[in-house]
Amino acid sequence: MTNSLALRLGPRSITTIAATSLVGIVAFGWPLIAAPTSSVVAHATDAPWLFAIVIPLLLAVVVSSFTDGGMDAKAIALLGVLAAVVAVLRPLGGGTAGLEPIWVVLVLGGRALGPGFGFVLGAVALFSSALLTGGVGPWLPFQMLGAAWVGLGAGLLPRATGRPELVLLAAYGAAASFAYGLLLNLWFWPFVANLPAALAFTPGAPIVENLLSWVRFTLLTSLGYDIPRAVLTVTLILIAGAPILNALRRVSRRAVFDPQPTFVPAP
């Protein structure tokens, strides 16, 4: 069974994804990696807003780098349909202990349709479900980038089939959805002012100290969301992963991404 890639990764799109991801890592991780004397630390409360503007612009560049030569109607339509599936699934777990079944779609979608598709799917899916529920806010760019990484990573997993593949995907799903929770903690953490020093982001403090504070902050606040989310993702992938993957692969065969029409003049 050959897996056709719904979106071809060319040098152009690889470069833009790489650059966007670099900026994205800083956007999420600056409280932990920025030098204490750097200018971003000096403007700690404005930094999240800055990145909330920069990231969507860079994501736009990524999407547009695909469209320039690669994004055909099939990919667009499939993207829209899968994003609709996410939009339906998302309110199901809304608020209840982080039980978001959407990770299954993002992980399996990225796996079956390739890393490029996974990346764009993550961004498009989170954006359209936010539009539908009226949930557009400063958190959205960070969610989009996080979900895009989850989809991208799923597409880059090593080859496997059958049971091992499901186990691999379940392990990845657990790790990815857990990591997503940790990352999203990071972006608003500097905001939460007046935490006790042991939990708070302290601009200018040594990196190790901030890292420990962040770990403690996560343990105390969001672990109750992140663990159930990871457990749900693993359970769903193990139970429903195989049929969903089959359905995605069926449609990718049926759609014939990258068809190679040949024309032979009449003899």
Binding site: V256, P259, Q260, P261, T262, F263, V264, P265, A266, P267
Partner: peptide, 12 residues
Amino acid sequence: VPHFTGGTLTGR
């Protein structure tokens, strides 16, 4: 057919 579906078209 065949630009979308793939395949071979002989003739014109």
